[in-house]
Design a protein around this nucleic acid. Structure first.
Lengths: 212, 212, 212, 212
DNA sequence: TTATAAACGAGACGGTACGTCCTGTCTTTTA
DNA sequence: TAAAAGACAGGACGTACCGTCTCGTTTATAA
């Protein structure tokens, strides 16, 4: 893998004549892939099944994505809904609410479970962590980072707060609990954990360096 | 799955006659499974390959473990080395050192990567989170919990410290970073992250409730 | 194969001490073998199935018969009913009746089909033709041969009649038809064919040599 | 079995798209099957071995023939050489020569033994007797039937001769002897038996009915 | 317009692994 | 010391997908 997994998209390299690739087929494949991922999991996710569900020949899939891994990544990224924060005027509350909403949805919905399957799969992560970061995670972290900055500016978090560490702590802790206990992530549990971590961050000494 | 995945001998149920199962075969299978997991990853981990590497017939594997999932879990659990903490007299330092040693090894060694593959696989975690917890994770958490209690007793951490939350925060944060960045976990990075989180925990107000 | 396939029977070789072989087991195995042969055919005839049906361990079968071939032969031979001719005073009629009765039973009953499976299996026949002849076929041919001799003595068949050829012609023709058409052998069809061949034999010139 | 065992292309049914089946693969499989049948016998005849010998994937075999039985039948039928009679002007001699040549070859050559294995296997015969007859045996019987008709026309055999019975008698007798004695069928033995039976048939009274 | 080039669905190709069944051998306990 | 029970290494079974490769058809651009 070269860092850019799919030989798809672009659209600009319409080199010479011939029938162009069908946008309908592409959409149907991605949709079918996401549904299959959500219902079967990544382990039982087969190109054969995706092609069949999309009503498409197998080579039509391979023409676009060289392996089921690339396909799965693309499906999740392209079809994921954007992350949007409320704006109540209280950034810390907004952050807390966002987390409490995000994590349950991420660990239970079809697309969310598909994404978690990809993020937590060791083979995927070795090859696609950077790609996933650039095309998916970074933009979502930016939302959280902005809320944290606003909270610092509003005096709700100390000036020395490391936003990256705080993001990883909140998401990492909840995810880790989900992984190791297998219990579903409820809004309440996610909110409580976020609260506890934010409380710790808020109590950090102003002059101290929490930085890593 | 019934919570105890393998029908692999409590050893006591030698009900009636018949040749007993070969302990050598069992050991060879587990060893081969662990090596295969480490070198190939869980995705390309096949019972066929394990049986061949162990010099054993395929049915001999199936007799003990009904699927590759059960086999992989068992191999990791049974062959994992115990978690042992130093005792320098400073529990916080011991904890920091343990984390700085544990995580790099966990995310790079053969057995460690196999374990991470299992813990982070969504299908595994759904079926085996409880089993993994009881047979593997709980005993290891206990070591960390003990160190935290000692640190609280020594006044290094405030009395209200929630040990479970602290453990999840440290392990979760580092694991999450590893998963989302794909970068190897170095001793230094793990140590720094542990330091930062422990500093936050140490700075928490004594009378406040960090509890969840 | 040594000509005497089974290390069984005898009963006299109770050489040294120890638990004697169970006659019940032996009988149960032979009976189970015959039933299995009749219902499944020689192709799907497995030692495993025979042992299970007989309520016996697999090694108990192997201890007596080294392969399923030996077992099948033994089962057919030991459990086959004797061939008994009527005696109406007319040897040709007796012969005709015997054939008309024998062949349908041979090609439809459990034991009969088992025997046919053995006789007509090319691998069996190569290894066991002599053994089968000595222990089974020869004694049955003798009955037919006696009837033919009586018919010759009674002037119903010419003096030059070759009894062996006549037997092979009658049995061979009917068997061959059964094999190549797959149609069940009825009493009527067997009788008609026997009649036609006996008529040919009866019409042979007295002084001529039919001999082979 | 539907009477036509293989879904193996009348060749005309190229209904809808898709890569057509490889004629090379088909030929290689049939050839390999015939060789394996001849050298191993039907009992040890495995699809696995055939596929390997043909240099073909196992599913490629199963795609054409649902079981080893269908494959074996097809291999024998499709690759069998045609039966061709001499024409010396004396039909009875031609018939006698044909039999004396045919039977030894049938019971000793690779393809011949394969065919005998199929014809004499009780499971095969129950399912494929009609199919074998229509696609193989009938055309070969026609050659013999023609010779017999010529012999009748030439006065060498009586007018009432039943050609079917005569064919079954000759082939059945020789085959039966081969099966029950296990001795190889020599030209001489086959010729002598044919002579004896033809002599009986020739001596039948002209006005009598030998018919069945 | 008419080639031409490429995508399309369909499906066969050589393979690999699956999980099951049976083979013939070997232990172990029970009688 | 044989019997029953059952595990052993091995190997074939028939199935499901893999990723690649023809096919015959369809569809746009380029000549």
């Amino acid at each position: 893998v070269t860092g850019r997994p799919a030989a798809t998209a672009g659209g600009n390299t319409r080199s010479r004549g011939g029938r162009p690739r069908s946008a309908e087929a592409e959409q149907a494949i991605l949709q079918a892939a996401l549904e299959t991922l959500g219902s079967e999991g990544y382990g039982s996710f087969s190109i054969e099944a995706v092609a069949a569900r999309a009503g498409v020949g197998r080579p039509t899939v391979y023409r676009r994505w060289p392996s089921k891994l690339e396909l799965a990544v693309e499906a999740v990224i392209r079809l994921a809904p954007p992350l949007i924060a409320n704006d109540t005027g209280n950034p810390l509350t907004d952050l807390r609410t966002l987390i409490a909403d995000l994590l349950p949805e991420l660990t239970s919905s079809a697309g969310g479970r598909a994404l978690m399957a990809l993020v937590t799969d060791p083979e995927v992560h070795a090859q696609f962590a950077r790609y996933l970061g650039e095309h998916y995670l970074d933009s979502r972290r930016a939302v959280l980072r902005r809320l944290i900055s606003q909270a610092v500016a509003a005096g709700q978090l100390p000036p020395g707060t490391d936003p990256e560490l705080l993001i990883d702590m909140i998401l990492g802790t909840i995810t880790y609990r989900w992984l190791t206990t297998g219990m579903p992530v409820t809004r309440q549990a996610a909110g409580q954990t976020a609260d506890a971590i934010l409380a710790l961050a808020a109590a950090a000494p102003t002059d101290g360096q929490t930085a890593q």
